[in-house]
Design a protein around this nucleic acid. Structure first.
Lengths: 205, 205, 205, 205
DNA sequence: TATGAATGAGCGTTCATTCAT
DNA sequence: GATGAATGAACGCTCATTCAT
């Protein structure tokens, strides 16, 4: 009874499967949220069975970590690159927002939940907090000294990142209410008023 | 399992019970998160049993909605009051942050999760987005006209609220990395530089 | 599709259900072994669903413990009673064996596995070892002083219990190979030879 | 998961591999128990992969059987040897216990579980029961005739083996409660009292 | 109104076994 | 002979919800 699923195995190399699974996981996590996504969905969406998933990952939580690391490292790399060129915080905000938009291959609707879930897992939280502090440091270290002393530049970094996250979340929740360009412009004006016009790299893309 | 019969049924009036249950739910949701809180915990914590809970609320999700409305209305009322006195956005930010700190009887650690869960439910999301737009409007309508025309004040409102949310989340996730007073001061200086010093109401509570 | 099981609930009082579930568990554990028995089987065999089982017991392991305690206490009580009447170790062996035969409502085939599994759970193991030492003490304290000093009577107790367990297991594994009456008689003769004939209570049943 | 390629395939002759696998299985089974040991562990511990294991054994259960046979045959051989020298049952008990102690390269803690699992498999059970009866026969055939006629010596064999098993299990479960030397001595005295002192071979190894 | 026994769908994970390469 | 990716059938447990009393 119940036509037993025919034993079929595309039998991909491990590395390829990992990519597939991570891709499926990212897509599902961002679409439906971490909790709402089952390991079975991830596996099926990658073309194999639940059991096989555990051949490639130790646990669902581990997939989350893997994903978090991947995204964070990319984010970090991008930030590094940005800071190398643009010395002005508003410019950084601009590029950060622009990136998070374009980079969302799939709907980021529930991305926030993804991060929240990640933050619940102690080791992931530690990782993320560490990475954030490093980002703040990097930011404070790269930005023009006219923005103040080290401490002040640190505050500015936190300010900028918080603004970024706040805008991003709001934008995800209700895009109609927030005009990203207007926000970036406003931030730029605020900074210019206080610190004077400071060259911000190559200028607008 | 099977907790030994406590058989206590004070049989309170419905309205009173609702209050109790909502109180318990708020406490538990903010402490442990929505998903992590079971209906049983809510009921028990309010002094009755799981089954009885369903006499007062249609579902767990409904409790969430009820709570979201309650908190949002309070938040809204508070904002109204603040806007009546303080005309400066930085002052608003100050009071908002101060309030969310003091108002947290219990750790707000997982508060974020609470809102995320709320946002997943379409009707709650619609409600919250509507309320947010109203808050932006109210803000833009109340703030000193020296902050720009209606549209600009709208942007400023979104900017302020986003900054608020961003700072709040970061503060929840890793309090050590963000100094709220420094952030408020920084925001005040940025605004003053651009718009000039504008009276910000009666000053600190 | 798949005619959803009609919601039917005999709705028994908790105490009664507990008994039923313990009974089902005992039957299944002894027949098929602890590992081989699923919580679903236990529940179904008691007339309810898997989920309901967890209304009455915290875990499968807990059911095991409950059962172990029940059997052990009964065993202990029986031993107490026996020791009150029969002062001779062979008589104790006799009664112990007789009891474990009659008491087995259902096949004891896999009883051994039941105890092994129990011994794997640390808290159960501690409980059982404590109980065993108490039984040895009780035995050594009750038995006629002609069997030696306290230490020697302790050894005799361990000897008797070990013999009992050994015979019991062998009897369970292959009843044809061991004649319980002959073993009891042999043990009696060995004791009589060494310690002289010592009254063993009311005599043979 | 997915251990980084070690890609080592010494490609040993089948017989050698079998030995290795059986060795690994014995070590793991006795240390952790049959159920707790996975085929992967066995294979890895023998230096090859899970899949390869099935070239040498039809199933995990078959490994168990193989092992049971091996151990039993060795046990039998040892008994044979012992019976050739020592004619006194207490001496046999002594040597049996001593052997099971020394022979345990690794903790025998879960050895019991090993045998229980074996007994669950019908064909293994049949084999073991047959072997046990043969051991009883051999014992009864070898032991001094002063211990009684064939039937009585059979009972004595069962008595001795049961005592052996009982003591062994108790010793494994809670070593503190049973003094093996005292038990052996006690058994010797019981026998001597009844049957008179009978030479027990060459004495202690 | 309140109780609490019962439901049932679901989830993350494990593992002996298979088989294409 | 060996690999290792894949299978699939369990299993223990959770929990929002229902409902007879």
């Amino acid at each position: 009874m119940v036509p037993r699923k025919i034993r079929q195995s595309p039998k991909l190399p491990a590395e390829k499967r990992r990519e597939q699974l991570l891709g499926s996981a990212r897509r599902l996590f961002t679409k439906n949220g971490y909790r709402e996504t089952t390991t079975e969905q991830i596996a099926l969406s990658a073309g194999l069975t639940k059991g096989a998933l555990y051949h490639h990952f130790k646990s669902k939580e581990n997939i989350l970590f893997e994903l978090v690391k991947e995204v964070t490292e990319r984010h970090f790399a991008r930030l590094d690159e940005v800071l190398g060129r643009a010395k002005a915080p508003a410019r950084v905000l601009d590029i950060l927002l622009e990136q998070s938009e374009s980079h969302s291959q799939c709907s980021l609707r529930d991305n926030v939940d993804f991060w929240i879930q990640a933050m619940r897992v102690p080791r992931i939280k530690r990782y993320l907090n560490r990475r954030f502090r490093e980002m703040v440091d990097r930011f404070a270290g790269s930005v023009d000294t006219r923005y103040g002393n080290k401490t002040q530049r640190n505050h500015l970094a936190v300010f900028t990142f918080s603004l970024f996250h706040g805008l991003r979340i709001r934008n995800v929740l209700d895009p109609r209410v927030v005009s990203l360009p207007a926000q970036i412009k406003l931030y730029g004006e605020l900074l210019d008023s206080k610190f004077g016009r400071i060259a911000s790299g190559k200028g607008r893309k």
